[in-house]
Deep mutational scan, measured.
Amino acid sequence: MDVFMKGLSKAKEGVVAAAEKTKQGVAEAAGKTKEGVLYVGSKTKEGVVHGVATVAEKTKEQVTNVGGAVVTGVTAVAQKTVEGAGSIAAATGFVKKDQLGKNEEGAPQEGILEDMPVDPDNEAYEMPSEEGYQDYEPEA
């Protein structure tokens, strides 16, 4: 019985440690998101679009440190934060509304985080759909 109880105690310690790591990862992701939003706020009209992409990228980098179902929630929060940063930029006159959601080359930025393969159960990952990809044929 002692062996059984000791095993359960060790398992509990492992769960607590994993929860603490997840909590730490979420806190880091939130900190990076805040950094990115402050970065966007300090940019001029020309830099705002690039700044919004930076927020998304920093958040995406930190999301990889967070495991399990938390990833889905962090990704949703990050996307809403990026959308909010863009709205703030438009409201303050840093950028025109028609410039939001495009990178410096004018290509749409939507789907940055949505296409990231995420499995809350950590069982399997699927690649994003290939609808947006084109076949590449090298020139002879």
Rank of each mutant, 00 (worst) to 15 (best):
V77M: 12
E131S: 08
G93R: 06
V66A: 07
Q62C: 11
L8G: 00
M116V: 01
A85T: 13
V74Q: 01
H50W: 10
A17F: 03
G36Q: 06
K23H: 05
A56K: 12
K80M: 03
L38D: 03
P108C: 10
A56L: 15
G36M: 15
A11S: 06
E28C: 07
Y39F: 11
T75Y: 15
V37Y: 04
D119Y: 01
N103V: 05
K97H: 14
K80E: 02
G7T: 11
G7P: 03
K60H: 04
S9R: 12
F4D: 00
V26G: 01
V63D: 00
A140R: 10
G68I: 14
A30G: 02
K32Y: 07
A124R: 07
M127K: 12
A69H: 05
K43G: 01
E130L: 12
A89M: 07
H50M: 13
Q62V: 02
V77A: 09
K43T: 05
E28G: 11
T64D: 05
E35W: 14
Y39L: 12
D2Q: 12
D115F: 07
P117M: 11
M127C: 07
T54M: 11
D98V: 06
K10V: 08
G101T: 07
F94E: 03
Y136D: 01
F4Y: 02
G47V: 13
T54C: 15
A18G: 03
V37D: 00
G132N: 12
K96H: 10
K43D: 00
D121L: 08
G7K: 13
S87T: 14
D119K: 03
V95F: 15
K43E: 00
Q24I: 14
V37T: 01
G31E: 12
F94L: 11
P120Q: 11
Y136R: 14
K6I: 10
E104W: 03
V49A: 15
E61V: 05
E57Y: 09
V82T: 12
E131C: 13
G51Q: 08
N122D: 12
T44Q: 01
A76Y: 15
G73A: 13
D135H: 06
P128Q: 07
Q62N: 08
V16A: 06
Y39G: 04
M1N: 00
P120V: 05
G14M: 10
G93W: 10
T72H: 10
E137R: 14
E35P: 02
G86T: 06
D121N: 07
A56W: 13
T81N: 01
S129F: 04
V70L: 12
K32N: 03
G51C: 10
V82M: 13
G68L: 06
A53Y: 14
P120T: 07
G51P: 02
I88F: 10
Y133T: 04
G36P: 01
D115Q: 11
V95W: 09
V15H: 00
G84Y: 15
K34E: 00
V95Q: 12
K96W: 13
A89F: 14
D2H: 13
G47E: 03
Y125F: 14
D119E: 12
V82R: 09
A27T: 03
A27R: 12
S42P: 01
S87D: 13
A107L: 08
S42N: 11
G73L: 11
Q109N: 01
V55G: 02
E46W: 09
E131W: 08
M116T: 11
V16D: 01
T92Q: 03
Y136I: 10
K96Y: 12
G106A: 06
A124S: 12
K45D: 00
Y136N: 05
T44V: 08
K45T: 09
E130P: 10
V66T: 03
A29W: 11
A56V: 13
E114Y: 12
G101K: 15
K34I: 15
V52T: 01
A91H: 10
E13S: 02
P128A: 06
Q134E: 10
A17D: 06
S9T: 03
N122H: 12
E110M: 06
P117G: 14
V3N: 08
P120S: 08
A107H: 05
T92S: 07
V49N: 02
T81Y: 14
V55Q: 02
A124P: 03
F4K: 00
G68K: 13
V82L: 12
D98Q: 04
E114S: 12
K34W: 15
Y39R: 13
S129V: 11
D2S: 04
V55Y: 14
E126M: 07
T92D: 02
T72V: 09
E13M: 11
Y133W: 08
A30S: 06
T75M: 13
S9K: 09
Q24Y: 15
V95P: 12
E126K: 14
Y125A: 06
I88R: 03
S42I: 14
A91D: 04
K58I: 13
S87W: 13
K6Q: 02
E35A: 09
D121V: 06
Q134I: 06
G86W: 15
M127V: 12
V71D: 01
A89S: 05
V63K: 01
M5W: 14
K60I: 07
F4R: 00
P138L: 04
A85D: 02
L38K: 11
E61A: 09
M5S: 05
G111N: 14
E139F: 07
A30D: 00
K12W: 13
E139H: 11
E137V: 03
K45L: 10
G84F: 14
E123H: 12
Q99N: 15
D135Y: 04
G93L: 09
K45E: 00
A27I: 13
G25V: 15
V3E: 00
K96L: 10
K10F: 14
A17N: 11
Y39M: 04
K32T: 04
T81L: 10
G67E: 03
E126Y: 06
V63N: 01
E123K: 06
E105H: 01
A91L: 14
A11K: 01
V66G: 02
V15A: 02
Q134T: 02
V52A: 07
A78Y: 12
Q99G: 13
A56C: 15
K43P: 00
V55H: 01
V15K: 00
I88Y: 01
S42K: 15
V70N: 01
Y125H: 11
Y39E: 03
G68H: 11
E83K: 04
I112V: 12
G132S: 06
E105C: 03
M5Y: 03
V15Q: 00
V37I: 06
A17M: 12
V37L: 08
E28S: 14
V52Q: 01
L100R: 09
N122Q: 10
K60T: 02
T54I: 13
Y39C: 04
E130M: 09
E139N: 11
A69D: 05
A30R: 03
K45A: 15
A11D: 00
D115A: 13
V49H: 04
V37H: 00
F94A: 10
K60C: 09
A140N: 08
V71C: 08
L100P: 15
K6S: 02
E13W: 07
I112E: 07
Q24R: 06
E28P: 01
V118S: 07
G106E: 06
T59S: 07
T75S: 11
K21D: 00
G14E: 07
V48N: 00
E114M: 03
K32G: 01
V3C: 02
G7R: 13
E104F: 14
V48E: 00
A90S: 06
M5C: 02
I112H: 09
D135C: 04
K80F: 03
I112F: 05
E13A: 14
L38V: 10
A89Y: 14
Q109P: 02
V48S: 01
K23C: 08
V63A: 07
K96I: 03
V82D: 01
Q62W: 06
V16R: 15
Q109W: 06
L8F: 04
K12T: 09
T81Q: 02
T22Y: 05
D121Y: 08
E131H: 05
A29G: 04
L100V: 07
G41H: 15
T72F: 02
E57C: 06
M1T: 00
E104K: 12
E123S: 09
V74T: 07
V71Q: 05
P138S: 10
V95K: 05
G7S: 13
A107Q: 04
T81A: 15
A27W: 08
E105G: 07
D119A: 04
L8R: 00
Y133R: 01
V66K: 02
A69W: 11
Y125C: 09
E137D: 04
K102C: 05
L113A: 13
